[in-house]
Design a protein around this nucleic acid. Sequence first.
DNA 1: GCGGTTAATGCAAGTATTTGCAAATGCTAA
DNA 2: TTAGCATTTGCAAATACTTGCATTAACCGC
Lengths: 138, 138
Amino acid sequence: MKQDILGKLEELGYRVTPQRAMIVAAINHSDDHISAEEIYAQVRAKYPHVNISTVYRTLETLKEIGLVTETDMGEGRVRYHPAGKGHHHHLVCQECGATIDLDETVLSNLKDALRREYGFLADLRHLAIFGHCVKCKQ
Amino acid sequence: MKQDILGKLEELGYRVTPQRAMIVAAINHSDDHISAEEIYAQVRAKYPHVNISTVYRTLETLKEIGLVTETDMGEGRVRYHPAGKGHHHHLVCQECGATIDLDETVLSNLKDALRREYGFLADLRHLAIFGHCVKCKQ
DNA sequence: GCGGTTAATGCAAGTATTTGCAAATGCTAA
DNA sequence: TTAGCATTTGCAAATACTTGCATTAACCGC
Ligand SMILES: [Zn+2]
Ligand SMILES: [Zn+2]
Ligand SMILES: [Zn+2]
Ligand SMILES: [Zn+2]
């Protein structure tokens, strides 16, 4: 049982168009933090007719279904990660840009507390937390 | 010792221009979650000549100094809060849009853990955490 | 008060993303 | 097959910022 995004789409009644297939392929073959523009470039190479708004709309759909996560890592553009490849988080230094990768368990306590105390099911699958790293703490 | 943003700017060697004074006034007199466009509208009413890029640049400066916090509450535009008025967070339901306000202490444990284990000083002064509220949990 | 220096501003163009709408196309049922 | 219909797409325009650059104006020292 692999993380078959296309299969899941079909199963849920979404149409599997060539555009969607290519967008999903680009996400699957990426290094896991791919931007809309990068997806667009890859898809366009095979099928120059596609429009970038289709890329954004497909990403929106995949987010809603929970198949990809969207994370703002402070670059002025957002990056996408296939949810099936596992969860983790990032600490991002606002001074030097350094990042530290975190295991998803770092936010487990918070997630549990929010569910227990507020009945809120927080989406903490792929977060960027901003601040200052050891080197840049004044 | 009030949260005198203008005084702090001056003290740090920034020039106190009429534009900055009006932008700061708009932030101080807001309900604490004001957008750039709303600040712009208020400032413009007094001084039609100002440009919105000045508003954005001033907000950027105030963020850097730590005098305001910037938070994406999922509205497609970001909101600003005077840091001197105290910290808190929001849970935002991605389904119905409902929000739950949280005391800043909810993230204290996380903040401490990040500092202790990674030497990372996280800026957790005004966060929006997305997810699903009790009503919308399926 | 009065220039000089340099930070801050206005303006226009650029980037990332979203949206309305009409045309195209996948899927269903006949 | 093929018509019917809803979904998806392309396109163009809109939105929320951001940035480069020339001009303006705080603020410092005289
Ligand atoms: Zn990541
Ligand atoms: Zn750093
Ligand atoms: Zn708030
Ligand atoms: Zn809800």
